[in-house]
Amino acid sequence: MQTELGAALPLWDLSSLSTLSFLSHSENTTFLARDPASGRRLVLRVQRIGYHTSAEIRSELAWIDALIGEDVVVTPRPVADGEGRSLCPIVLNGSPRQIAAFEFLSGKEPDPSGDLVAWFGKLGTISARLHTHSRRWNKPPDFQRKVWDFDAMLGNRPLWGDWHAGLGLREDGRKLLQRVADTLRQRLDTYGNTNDRFGLVHADLRLANLLVDGARLGVIDFDDCGFSWFFYDFAAAVSFMEHEPMVAELQASWLDGYRAIAPVSHEDELMLPIFVMLRRMLLTAWIASHSDTETARRLGTDYTDGTVAMGEQFLQTL
């Protein structure tokens, strides 16, 4: 894949001296292209086969363009190829693939051992700005993104796999998590999905998708953006550390930052632990269905065991 993609770099007006290096593999595979002749750097995202339609990807890019145009968030700008295509079709390893290109954004992932609480205050402010924009933005008529409701996460049409197949999940754990899932469904049904609570969100604001550079906090990877509960964005932000004691402090800081821009009702705040448990079970399903990723290999059955432990505590605290 990398060799064929490297040969296609002139499509983005990159010189023959350009190099291509692997960045990450999750839902998609990303590479960094460097052109020493011009100093230009682009991130190329090879879209996963069978996940998003072309219309869904173009809709993601349209929202990013709108957010940049209105200075809502610092995020990499999508870059069209030399023919003006926001999605460039290239055959890689014998399969037709869609490539989205983005400007390079400097920075590094926030350090969990550093001043993460302060960064979560900034993230709360960014989240509120995103949600405010989402509520008022006039979407293009052909706008299409996935809906991240309960059925898409833990129900009968799971987009990231079946949580019942969690790595190492035993029958006793499966029964307990079924009780958790039933409780989550009931609480989410009661909370509802009216327009003030449910709309277009980033849906994956985890640390790996944040870039710190000095005092600036940038956001990347809108690939999972879709329609869900606005306050699910906090749960995504604490991905893979949902069980850590510091989550309570992170939540308080996030809420302070959010309230600097937009109100948070008492009912919204009470839903945050619901969304955190929902996200934890969703990630348990994702790890099982994405066993080829470094994240899944690193976390494995330990993450599933932790989900069961979290689920037991969750049921006890209701």
Rank of each mutant, 00 (worst) to 15 (best):
45 R>L: 05
152 A>D: 03
126 I>F: 02
241 M>Q: 14
224 D>K: 10
290 H>N: 14
141 P>N: 12
182 D>S: 13
87 L>W: 09
183 T>I: 00
197 R>W: 09
122 K>I: 02
41 R>G: 02
268 D>L: 02
2 Q>F: 00
306 G>E: 07
315 L>W: 09
22 F>T: 01
270 L>E: 15
157 R>G: 01
268 D>I: 03
201 V>W: 00
63 W>V: 13
276 V>W: 03
169 L>H: 08
64 I>A: 02
182 D>W: 03
109 E>D: 05
7 A>S: 14
250 L>W: 11
196 D>K: 12
238 V>A: 06
179 R>S: 13
239 S>E: 14
188 L>S: 04
252 A>N: 10
74 V>I: 14
262 A>I: 02
121 G>K: 12
281 M>H: 11
247 V>F: 06
204 D>C: 04
237 A>Q: 10
165 A>G: 02
130 L>V: 04
193 N>Q: 15
5 L>S: 06
107 G>P: 03
2 Q>G: 00
265 S>R: 04
312 E>K: 15
150 F>C: 04
184 L>V: 09
78 P>Q: 05
185 R>A: 06
150 F>E: 01
248 A>I: 04
180 V>R: 09
262 A>P: 04
62 A>M: 03
302 D>V: 13
170 R>F: 02
60 E>V: 07
240 F>A: 01
203 A>V: 06
71 D>Y: 05
195 N>H: 10
307 T>D: 12
59 S>D: 07
